[in-house]
Simulated assay, not measured.
Amino acid sequence: MDKAVKPLFEQNPLVYPIVASSTFRLKSAEEGHQLSEGQPGYLYSRWSNPTVDSAAESIRQMEGAEGTLLLPSGMAAISTSIICLLKAGDHIVAPQPVYGGTHQALKTTFSKWGLEYTFVDGSSVEEFEKAIKENTKVLLGETPANPTMSILDLEAFGKLGSKRGLLTMVDSTFAGPYIQQPIKYGIDVVIHSCTKYIGGHSDLTAGALSFKSRKIYNQVYHEAKVLGFLALSPFDAFLIHRGMKTLGIRMERHSSNAMAIAEFLQSHPKVLKVHYSGLPSHPHYETAKKQMKHFGGMVSFEVTGGKEGGRKVVEGTKIFTLAVSLGGVESLIEHPATMTHTDTVMSREDKEASRITDNLIRLSVGLEDVDDLKADLESALDRV
């Protein structure tokens, strides 16, 4: 099915409108039949909606994809890709560290349905290859990784999938499609939580799947349509479309602010280690420089004082807001070990394997004045 956006409005509005209709008028029963059979057009908003398609098209173009689907959340995008591309008895190789929801879904829900998984060092293509079995169908990567900012070499990852005849999927949420386009490195499926940088204003929840091939896109589209996974609100799609218009300029400011914060933290006596791929000291700096236009707005660091030191810092800021999520214009701070990667999400052993320490702090660096952000962190670090 060709889901290119069709003009619906004679007035040609500058901003594509919110089409809130759940269903669409038909000229004839035959038209309804043709639309039901997959002819381009609009029949029912659970299948496709003009505002949603318009937003999806803006992401598709930036990703360089053959097709993009929008879902109600980033986690819905991850789950949809797994449900529609894998079956019971298949095996997936997944990264550590990884978004907490992905980790939990693989261990608790998808394993219950008969899906096998193996976690490996998410920055090592060699470890991915070692974990491949006869029933492996998907290699799942995440770069930059949540919350340690490790980097996966997309070119080597794409080549591995091609060599072994396996689907490659990459969660690119921390970079966003302006900074990084995994498809040009051979990745089959790109995952985004549009809640983050794509939306950019902490006022929507959505996810996106972009596909290198039309064949995979069609497979996921038709199965997701049957299951009802494509019912993103056109109101949220409108906000996605709005966010895409400023994504580039926002990501440049996020990145420059984050670089300044990372350099500031690196020189602070109460900071033990800074995780930011834009620093030459980062172990994957050269890889990041090769595949990322900028280094993004996410920074994590380890503070002295252990878990209590981390708590004092995240509770001591005034400009950085203590909250989960990321990618909005405002700066956020959180403590992964007790907030996003808690003991209910992953075991102590999994945390150790993922290098998520009790003194690790994650920052989503926003668009505020960078000197104000530095002063805010300086004040919080004084509490340790």
Rank of each mutant, 00 (worst) to 15 (best):
D90N: 14
V5A: 14
M62S: 09
I82F: 08
G67F: 04
P17S: 04
S54E: 14
A76E: 13
L8H: 02
G38Q: 00
L14Q: 14
Q61W: 07
I83Y: 13
I83N: 11
N12I: 00
P40V: 01
Q11I: 11
S81T: 11
S48N: 15
G89N: 06
G89E: 07
K6D: 04
H33Y: 08
S79M: 09
K6S: 12
P95K: 04
E63H: 07
P17H: 03
A94C: 14
L86N: 14
G67S: 06
G64E: 02
Q39V: 05
Q11R: 12
T68Y: 03
Q61D: 14
S58E: 15
N49S: 10
A55Y: 10
E31L: 00
I83T: 11
G41N: 03
A76C: 12
V52D: 11
S79H: 08
G74C: 10
V52Y: 11
L26Q: 01
E66H: 09
I18S: 05
M75K: 09
W47H: 03
P7F: 03
L70N: 11
P7A: 05
P72E: 13
Q61K: 14
I92P: 11
G38C: 01
S21K: 13
A20W: 06
Q34V: 01
V19F: 13
V5S: 15
C84I: 02
L85M: 11
S45K: 01
S21I: 00
P17N: 05
I59C: 02
S45A: 15
R46F: 12
E57I: 02
S73H: 03
E10D: 14
V52Q: 12
V19R: 05
Y42D: 02
T68G: 03
K27N: 15
S45F: 04
S73C: 03
T68C: 13
G38N: 03
G41R: 01
A94R: 05
S45H: 08
A20E: 12
Y44N: 13
L86C: 15
M75R: 09
E37V: 02
G32A: 14
I59S: 00
S21P: 04
E31Q: 01
V5E: 12
L43R: 01
K6Y: 07
A20I: 01
Q34A: 12
L70W: 10
L85P: 04
K6H: 11
I83C: 05
F24K: 02
S21T: 07
C84G: 01
Q61C: 09
V19S: 06
A76V: 05
S79G: 10
E57K: 04
G74W: 06
R60Q: 15
N49H: 07
L69M: 05
P7Q: 13
G38A: 01
N12V: 06
S22N: 12
T80A: 15
H33G: 00
C84M: 08
L43K: 01
S79F: 07
G32C: 09
H91L: 07
P7H: 04
G41S: 04
S28D: 08
I82R: 01
A65F: 03
F9R: 08
R25G: 09
L70P: 11
G89Y: 06
L86R: 09
N49Q: 09
L35V: 08
R60A: 12
S21R: 10
P50G: 11
M62T: 13
